[in-house]
C-alpha cells in the first residue's frame, strides 16, 4: 500500500516550505528512512523467504563472480607492478608482499567488489523492480495476498548484504594470487614465503574491518537498488532512471562510508 501512497504524494500540488528542490530532497530522505525502517520490520517478522533469499544469493554470486575474479586478479598484479619501482628505490622490494596485502585486504578488495556489485547487481535490482513496478507486477503480487516488499525487497537486500563479505574474501584471495604471480615472476619468491610475509602485516582486526565494510556496502547497494526500483514511475524512462540512480547512489554512498568507517575503525586502534 505504501508504494501507491508515494505516487499520490508525488502528484499532489503542494506549497513548498523552502523550495521544490530542497523540500524534495528532505522528502526523499524521509522516504528512504521509512523504507529502511520497513525493511528491518519485515526482515525480523515471520515468515522468512528462505527460498527467495537463497535464490538471490545465487544470483548475486553468479552475476559478479567472473567480473570480481578478473578485476581482483588485475588489481593485484597491477598494484604490485606499480609499487615495485618505488620500493626498489629504497631497497625495500622485499616489503612488496606486506604492502600489497595491506592494500588489497584493507581497502582494495572491499572497494573494488562493492563498485563491481553496485554496477552489476545494484543496477539489476533497480531495473528489475522498476520494470515490475511500472508493469503492475508488484500490484499483482500484492492483490494475490503476497507481501511484495518482503518477497522482492527484503530477500534482495539480505542476499547482497550476506554475499558481499564472501565476495570480498574471494576478491582479496584472487588479488593476492595476482600479486604473488607478479612477485614470483620477478623476485622468484616462493608461494609459502610470499604468503607468510603477506599475512605477517595483517591482523584479525584488518580482516574484520574489511568484512564489516563489505556488510555495509552490501546493505547500501541493496537499499539503493531496491528503493529506486520499488518506487519507479513514468514507464520505461522511469526504469532506466531507477537503474541509473541505483548505481550512482550506491557508488557515492560507498565512498562516503569508506571514509567514515576508516575514521571510526582507526579510532579503536
Amino acid at each position: 500500500m505504501e508504494s501507491t501512497s508515494k505516487n499520490s504524494d508525488i502528484t499532489a500540488k503542494k506549497k513548498y516550505l523552502i523550495s521544490k528542490g530542497i523540500d524534495g530532497f528532505f522528502e526523499d530522505i524521509y522516504d528512504l528512512y521509512q523504507f529502511i525502517l520497513r525493511f528491518f520490520k519485515e526482515a525480523f517478522s515471520a515468515p522468512v523467504e528462505w527460498k527467495e533469499i537463497v535464490n538471490q544469493c545465487y544470483q548475486v554470486g553468479y552475476k559478479t563472480l567472473l567480473l570480481v575474479s578478473v578485476t581482483g586478479f588485475i588489481t593485484g598484479t597491477v598494484f604490485t607492478k606499480q609499487s615495485r619501482p618505488s620500493l626498489s628505490a629504497f631497497g625495500a622490494a622485499s616489503w612488496l608482499p606486506s604492502l600489497v596485502s595491506i592494500a588489497i585486504i584493507k581497502t582494495m578488495a572491499p572497494l573494488i567488489t562493492a563498485l563491481i556489485a553496485a554496477g552489476k547487481v545494484g543496477s539489476n535490482m533497480g531495473a528489475e523492480l522498476g520494470s515490475m513496478k511500472v508493469t503492475e507486477q508488484i500490484d499483482a503480487m500484492e492483490v494475490s495476498a503476497t507481501n511484495p516488499f518482503k518477497f522482492l525487497v527484503v530477500s534482495r537486500i539480505l542476499a547482497i548484504t550476506f554475499m558481499m563479505p564472501v565476495l570480498v574474501l574471494y576478491t582479496g584471495l584472487v588479488g593476492m594470487m595476482g600479486a604473488y604471480l607478479n612477485v614470483h615472476s620477478n623476485e622468484l619468491t616462493s608461494f609459502t614465503s610470499f604468503f607468510i610475509s603477506a599475512f605477517k602485516s595483517i591482523e584479525f582486526k584488518d580482516i574484520f574491518s574489511s568484512l564489516f565494510k563489505a556488510l555495509c556496502y552490501g546493505f547500501t547497494i541493496g537499499v539503493a537498488g531496491c528503493y529506486q526500483g520499488y518506487y519507479a514511475q513514468n514507464g520505461t524512462q522511469g526504469v532506466g532512471r531507477a537503474a541509473n540512480l541505483a548505481v550512482v547512489f550506491s557508488m557515492f554512498l560507498i565512498f562516503v562510508e569508506e571514509l567514515l568507517i576508516v575514521q571510526v575503525l582507526n579510532s579503536f586502534r
Binding site: T135, Q137, D139, A140, M141
Partner: peptide
C-alpha cells in the same frame, strides 16, 4: 489487470 501484469 489491464496489461495482464504477468510475472515476465
Amino acid at each position: 489487470f489491464q496489461n495482464s501484469a504477468l510475472y515476465d
